[in-house]
């Protein structure tokens, strides 16, 4: 009886153990440290580049770092999170990515020689949850209407493939007006001259970055209020990769327009591969960096 129960439990344990072991295998260490010190204290800061090692690191596709405490050896607090600040988005991760994920902190004292950081690193491991990856077939068949998909809906993610006309219209409506720039500038105490420079820069960036979509472009609008959307890729109907030549996006989590340029006109039956953060796909490992020597 005991043996039989043991046999019944064994496969279940294996299933559970596999991703957990992968997460246990991930170690978070320091790769590089950069202390950028500027006489104008509005700028600069300390950046710590992290490195994920261990057999499980290859399965990690995105990460998010939450710093709980950070101080230098003189006792200076280097992390002063804004209470109203929203949690940061997950960053895409691969072992080949350089530089690796980074933590940004305030400058330590000039005479400090080391720092300590504690916190959590959330690892997104899609292999732990099949529903983290969604394939949406023939997504170009209905433009300018949000895609219908239960997993997207439950994650409160909305993706709308756009026609060129609608894309241009939404881009134009999302651009800040001169009045908005002026208002924001005044809030920051900018002079009239600085505001005019910002407006001129905005015009210049618009003329530079306002590349028109072509017939080879795939245009999307995404809404992702909870930051659950990890990535959006393109595929042929059979699931094979549909290689893009470039991608540009505008906006943030609440509303973003995306232009993906292909080498040729996208096939009508192209599919969208959407990767979503789900609770099952997340593992949290502690972050403990001690006596990190300052350069």
């Amino acid at each position: 009886m005991f043996l039989r129960r043991g046999r019944a439990i064994a496969p279940l344990m294996l299933l559970l153990a596999s991703p957990l072991r992968a997460a246990d295998d991930v170690k978070v260490t320091t790769a590089n440290v950069e202390d950028q010190r500027v006489s104008d204290e509005r700028f600069g800061g300390l950046t710590i580049e992290l490195q994920l090692t261990g057999a499980g690191a290859a399965d990690v596709k995105a990460i998010r770092v939450k710093v709980k405490s950070a101080k230098d050896d003189a006792g200076t607090n280097l992390s002063k999170p804004d209470k109203e600040e929203k949690p940061r988005d997950f960053e895409e991760f691969s072992k080949d990515r350089h530089p690796g994920p980074e933590i940004r902190l305030s400058n330590p004292r000039r005479d400090a020689s080391s720092i300590e950081v504690t916190g959590d690193v959330e690892l997104f491991i899609p292999a732990r949850d099949p529903s983290a990856k969604q394939k949406i077939d023939r997504f170009l068949s209905q433009l300018d209407k949000p895609l219908s998909n239960a997993a997207l809906k439950s994650a409160k993610v909305e993706i709308t493939p756009l026609s060129a006309k609608e894309y241009k219209a939404r881009q134009a409506s999302g651009r800040p007006t001169k009045e908005q720039i002026a208002e924001e500038g005044k809030k920051h105490g900018a002079s009239e001259k600085e505001i005019q420079e910002a407006i001129a820069l905005m015009d210049a960036l618009t003329s530079l970055g306002g590349e028109e979509p072509s017939e080879n472009s795939i245009l999307l609008e995404t809404k992702d209020p909870d930051g659950k959307l990890i990535s959006v890729e393109l595929a042929h109907a059979d699931g094979s990769d549909l290689h893009s030549q470039g991608r540009s996006s505008n906006g943030g989590r609440e509303l973003k327009t995306v232009k993906i340029d292909l080498a040729e006109k996208p096939p009508a039956d192209a599919a969208l591969l959407v990767t979503l953060r789900t609770s099952k796909s997340l593992v949290t490992v502690p972050l403990t960096l001690k006596e990190v020597v300052l350069p």
Binding site: G174, R175, P176, T177, Q180, I181, E183, E184, G185, H188, A190, E194, I195, E197, A198, L201, M202, L205, N250, G251, G252, E254, L255
Partner: peptide
Amino acid sequence: TPIRRSSLLLLII
């Protein structure tokens, strides 16, 4: 979002 973008521009300036 537009305001956030404009503040980024101002930061550059």
